[in-house]
Nucleic acid binder design. Structure first.
Lengths: 341, 341
DNA sequence: ACAATTTATGAAAACGTTTTCATAAATTCG
DNA sequence: CGAATTTATGAAAACGTTTTCATAAATTGT
């Protein structure tokens, strides 16, 4: 090993064993023919010298990094944290590294991350878009270079050619409406995210479809589609409960905001579920422990993560075709709790 | 560009502009002398051809990957999710990629991840250990190769030479004891994690110190140091409330398990805070919305993340010295809520 | 025993970038 | 104006791995 050399290389091993680097490489990766005994010696020497393959050099040569890029709005959101947890574990088991980037729901950041990850020559991409992303062209570069890209949860619309895995948001909305209807609610409102995002659009559509199916009047005055944060939610609540027609059922398409509703209700003497039935979305653990506990829609994040990795590996392994593959839709289920009893 | 070439290279740019690759490289990185006009032309051509630097090739040549490795027990834990969120954002702003690995609290996995990340030639490491890690030698390799490594939260003991940032767990324990004492509790217990981990050891020490300082009897029979999961916590609770001396104050060193206590209390007619005062740890948002809300210790995860990145960048930028640097301790604060009123 | 095949190894090129060493052109300075 | 300096560019080597092309040795089959 050269004087000022930081790491041992395959050449060091070769020199120490009086072999060629080619043979050493073959021994380490056990590709092609290597004498059993030679392989043994190489392995032992590698261990002895503490040799670690330089994955950059290998990546450069093989045009493969064993790295997957993941872009999402924010890791600390419950659903995403769960998905990332599963995805990272599964990918590691398959020998892949996971690099993560957060768009913070900013399309410009999302674009920047896409370019960075492309530069890093990720082998594939997993993306959940920002709520505001309407132009998806910054992802074209991956498809253009046959790099598999898989969208999930917040995905591009159908006219954008891409593989997609999404929750059954329509059904989620439908189930919420059905459940509220069956709980006897008649004046059912919704506090929803912006309709620019596929998930909120689908939840609203399913919700309205459910209302109609179960003959509950569709009262547009009780529908709010807006940013899902505490401030906006409180504003909506104030309006909802100052009008003549007050809701007796509310579908809030994010659990955190459902909790906000719970607190507002408590402070304003609105009894849940007696005066107001409440359904959230995501099955954030918090919904199970608040009082009253909140009925919500579970998205099975672990199953979601499984599906993601399974599909991604399939995409990596089979050559990229340009043919249309319909979106995979993962199931949701309604979990009934005290807020609707 | 060659027929079957996937990506444009610096050679393509050079050819298209009738320049040498050297000049193109200099123009792109604007190092050394390049004519203003030439640089302009290079940039334009790069844009036109959609050139993206191959960071692997650059990394190989520069011996620098602009990638930081982060190993932690599980991303989906509240405190860690918050830290990761902040760390990823800050590192991205500095031009670094973040690769994440979860040990799932398994030392073997932790070791495997350390080796993988070393192979990937990360520029630096951030690590929060498993609860069981007692042998830290799998991290030696980083220090041996002057790769900065920074531990946080769950860190090696003082006799292991490493840079460390940790919360003030001792003070957290002390504050909890003080608060329970001042709430008038006299039979104060603790449900704690395993003492093998520095954080639980320090919380327990601070807690006991606090009891003594405020003249509350130290009742070892009320102290449980064990795995922090629902099952174990319930087991401890059963024992605690079947003995003659039942606790009137309880310090649970994880918020999730404090919630478990809350539910157990509700089911068993133990009134909180009247019969039992309760203090958790971490300020998980769930503690604010359960009823009664839970007094807890905030660890300022965002500040923690800031500090981590700040220190790490400093380590990367200044040459690695072997001199001892004392652990940085970040503040904690007690947030008083209904469970202790 | 000899050809055909299989096993085992090495030399050298390639991946795409950056940087050192030259050298040429332009500029500054006395 | 000529020497010194600064600016601008190119050729070539280097980073550490893998793989193709050879070739030699061992094994198999007839």
């Amino acid at each position: 090993m050269k004087e000022n050399q930081q790491h041992h290389t395959i050449l060091d091993l070769a020199a120490a064993l009086k072999l060629s680097p080619a043979t050493v490489s073959r021994a380490l990766n056990n590709t092609s023919y290597v004498k059993k005994e030679t392989q043994q010696r190489v392995m032992e020497m590698a261990l002895k010298l503490g040799y670690r393959k330089n994955t950059m050099a290998a990546g450069l040569r093989n045009n493969k990094t064993n790295t997957i890029g993941l872009i999402l709005p924010k890791i600390s959101m419950y659903f995403h944290a769960e998905v990332v947890t599963v995805v990272q574990n599964l990918l590691h088991a398959q020998g892949y590294n996971l690099i993560i980037g957060q768009s913070n729901d900013d399309p410009a950041m999302e674009k920047e991350l896409a370019e960075t990850f492309f530069s890093s020559r990720v082998d594939a991409m997993i993306v959940s878009c920002t709520l505001q992303t309407e132009d998806f062209s910054h992802f074209d570069i991956f498809a253009d270079h046959q790099i598999p890209i898989l969208f999930y949860d917040r995905v591009p619309p159908g006219n954008y050619r891409a593989r997609v895995i999404k929750g059954d948001d329509f059904n989620g909305g439908f189930l919420a409406a059905q459940h509220l209807a069956e709980a006897g609610c008649n004046k059912i409102g919704i506090i929803n995210g912006p309709l620019t995002s596929n998930i909120y659009e689908a939840r609203a559509a399913g919700f309205i479809g459910g209302l109609q199916f179960f003959d509950v009047p569709v009262r547009n005055a009780l529908f709010y589609h807006q940013q899902l944060n505490t401030e906006q939610t409180l504003k909506a609540l104030k309006k909802l409960f100052s009008d003549k027609v007050k809701p007796d059922g509310l579908f809030v398409t994010s659990d955190r905001n459902a909790v906000t509703v719970l607190q507002y209700a408590k402070e304003n003497g609105i009894r849940i579920p007696d005066d107001l039935c409440l359904v959230g979305y995501s099955n954030d653990p918090v919904t199970a422990v608040v009082s009253p506990s909140i009925t919500t829609i579970d998205q099975f994040p672990a199953l979601f993560g499984d599906k993601l990795v399974e599909t991604l590996l399939e995409m990596i392994r089979s050559p990229q075709t340009n043919e249309f593959v319909p979106a995979v839709v993962t199931p949701v289920t309604l979990i009934s709790r005290e807020s609707t009893r």
